[in-house]
Nucleic acid binder design. Structure first.
Lengths: 220, 220
DNA sequence: ATAATTTTTTAGGTTAGTCTAAATTTTTAT
DNA sequence: ATAAAAATTTAGACTAACCTAAAAAATTAT
């Protein structure tokens, strides 16, 4: 059975939104920028193809098969992003739309060859983990910088990739994956932060920006 | 104005078939494996978009705009083929279907970056010339090995890429782009040839196979 | 030159994926 | 507990790209 590009996009969205429990028609409608009626239509088709489990008025969840497909797409998307950044010298804010197309390219063994060519990378340019050939996705235990309550040393491990201008702003601040952030002070009033990056002069950062940065706590 | 993947496929076919003069509905129908009625429909749309010039019952020719698009697609296709063979170690008979998909991927500057990454190759894995960044396609003056009338030394410069099993057969004969073929004898009866490749022991080759090999005459 | 054949177009229908508007179900607020 | 609001589904329509069958035009053969 073949699954269209559009169907694949639904599966990816459901995967992304299904953090806890089932995904509502409205949530999908907003995420895909389509009308709710269109979502209902498609969910029926996806259910017919056993990619999701769907009961009227009760939202949708991925089946095992649907989840496998989602992980394949995520693997493809992230590996192509690595290719675009590492090999074609794109910036991290430029690759999403292109990878969105490349992830739908099919070919015997293509993605595993690409994986090997890239040196079996574990993370994409934004720090998101790449599912391995067995589609195992290893999640790290990270915190949003904006939610942290104690001053200390943290390592930038992942950034929110949904907004190119956010990524451009991080570039302007010269914040990259792997950087060490020292959190000096928390302003409780508005959640903004006083930090320094890789031991350079300290800067202020809004809570909004800090929430797009995921960090790993270092032991000193 | 945006041009769909399907429209692009028509443009490529017209380019390929338009060797001399205009292309007939039937020729396109066979090349694209679609019914003639569908071709007529689409030609009207392509004419509306100024990609072709089309008059009822008189076949179709590409406009300047259509020709530019065709060359862009050929450039993309051939560069992706180089990528697949050079970087991902595919064989020359395995890349066509994947490149067919990759050629439709759009992205600012993508193909020029790929071109640079690959070292500005002049030919694809089958020896077809790659249009440069200005879309100039330099054609070589080659002959089909099966049409040659005089014994002598020739260089394999291009092979017919339409048939994977033909390419596999060439691989079995260990014939590659750049190889030197010595044509010892022509059998006029059936057009078959007695040749040797890179000075190894001589072999016979059918006229059919020889016609899929394009060669350049060497001076001795 | 006309009849037969082939090519091409037209007319009307199908499917995937979207839409709007209306109907229905669920949730929330009183 | 019921009314109002929100979410969801149904019904019917649209577009792109295909199809079949029939009509029309062009070509070929007698």
């Amino acid at each position: 059975m073949q699954i269209s590009k559009n169907e694949q996009d639904y599966i990816k969205s459901i995967f992304k939104l299904q953090a806890d429990g089932s995904v509502s028609t409205t949530a999908l409608s907003e995420h895909l920028h389509l009308k709710a009626a269109s979502i209902t239509d498609m969910l029926k088709k996806l259910a017919d193809k056993k990619l999701v489990s769907y009961k009227k008025y009760q939202g949708v969840t991925l089946s095992t098969k649907g989840e496998k497909l989602a992980l394949e797409l995520i693997r493809k998307h992230r590996l192509w992003e690595v290719f675009l950044v590492e090999k074609l010298n794109y910036k991290w804010d430029e690759v999403h739309a292109i990878a969105e197309q490349l992830e739908h390219v099919e070919g015997l063994d293509l993605i595993n060859r690409l994986d090997k060519f890239l040196g079996l990378p574990k993370f994409d340019p934004h720090g998101d983990p790449i599912p391995n050939e067995k589609l195992v996705l290893t999640k790290q235990n990270l915190s949003q910088l904006g939610k942290i309550t104690k001053p200390g040393k943290y390592q930038v491990s992942m950034v929110n990739q949904d907004n190119p201008s956010f990524l451009q702003y991080l570039t302007k601040l010269s914040i990259k994956i792997g950087d060490i952030i020292k959190l000096h002070e928390l302003i409780t009033f508005d959640g903004s932060l006083n930090i320094s990056i890789n031991n350079s002069t300290s800067i202020f950062m809004s809570n909004t920006v800090a929430n797009g940065i995921y960090v790993y706590k270092l032991n000193n």
